[in-house]
Amino acid sequence: MLRVAVPNKGALSESATTMLREAGYSLRLNSKRLVHRDVENDIEFFYLRPRDIATYIGRGILDIGITGRDLLLESESEAEEILQLGFGRSAFHYAGEAGVYSDPAELAGKTIATSYPVLVEQDLARRGIDATTVKLDGAVEVSIELGVADAIADVVETGTTLRMAGLETFGDPILVSEGVLVARSGFDKPGADVFLRRVQSVMVARSYVLIDYDIHRDHLAEAMAVTPGYESPTVSQLNDPEWCAVRSMVEAKDSHRIMDRLYSAGARAILVTAIDACRM
Results as ranks from 00 to 15, higher is better:
219 H>P: 03
119 L>G: 08
90 S>F: 03
160 T>E: 15
158 T>N: 13
255 S>D: 07
198 R>Y: 07
150 D>T: 04
232 S>M: 06
108 A>I: 02
134 V>A: 09
112 I>D: 05
37 R>W: 06
213 Y>A: 03
17 T>P: 07
150 D>I: 00
28 R>I: 01
113 A>M: 01
166 G>S: 09
208 Y>V: 03
84 Q>A: 15
233 P>C: 06
263 Y>H: 13
184 R>M: 11
24 G>V: 00
150 D>L: 01
79 A>H: 08
9 K>I: 00
163 R>H: 14
4 V>R: 03
125 A>W: 04
275 I>A: 02
140 V>K: 02
26 S>M: 10
263 Y>Q: 13
258 I>H: 08
68 G>S: 14
278 C>I: 15
87 F>T: 10
53 I>F: 03
191 G>C: 03
36 H>M: 07
141 E>S: 01
15 S>C: 09
276 D>G: 13
68 G>D: 02
70 D>H: 09
9 K>A: 09
162 L>F: 02
46 F>L: 12
161 T>V: 11
131 A>F: 07
77 S>E: 10
134 V>N: 06
197 R>P: 11
5 A>E: 08
28 R>S: 09
170 F>T: 08
211 I>V: 07
271 L>M: 14
35 V>I: 15
206 R>Q: 15
6 V>W: 02
93 H>R: 14
256 H>K: 12
52 D>E: 14
13 S>R: 03
149 A>K: 00
229 G>P: 14
49 R>W: 13
21 R>S: 13
263 Y>C: 02
46 F>Y: 15
108 A>M: 12
162 L>P: 10
145 E>N: 07
10 G>C: 01
86 G>D: 07
74 E>T: 07
142 V>T: 04
219 H>V: 03
181 L>V: 02
155 V>D: 13
129 I>N: 01
100 V>K: 08
280 M>C: 10
94 Y>P: 13
158 T>V: 04
27 L>D: 06
118 V>M: 05
136 L>W: 01
115 S>F: 02
220 L>Y: 04
6 V>I: 13
163 R>E: 12
199 V>D: 12
128 G>Q: 14
146 L>N: 05
27 L>A: 00
41 N>W: 01
128 G>W: 00
218 D>S: 11
171 G>Y: 05
164 M>G: 03
211 I>M: 09
19 M>W: 06
100 V>I: 12
248 S>E: 11
251 E>C: 01
233 P>L: 03
277 A>D: 13
239 N>L: 09
218 D>K: 15
157 E>C: 00
176 V>M: 07
176 V>R: 10
80 E>K: 15
127 R>S: 07
166 G>I: 07
205 A>P: 12
163 R>G: 00
239 N>S: 09
160 T>F: 11
57 I>F: 09
49 R>D: 15
129 I>H: 05
276 D>A: 14
267 A>G: 06
34 L>H: 07
226 V>E: 13
105 A>C: 03
159 G>I: 05
100 V>T: 09
113 A>V: 10
21 R>M: 14
25 Y>W: 05
198 R>D: 14
245 A>W: 08
203 M>D: 11
126 R>E: 14
69 R>D: 05
276 D>C: 04
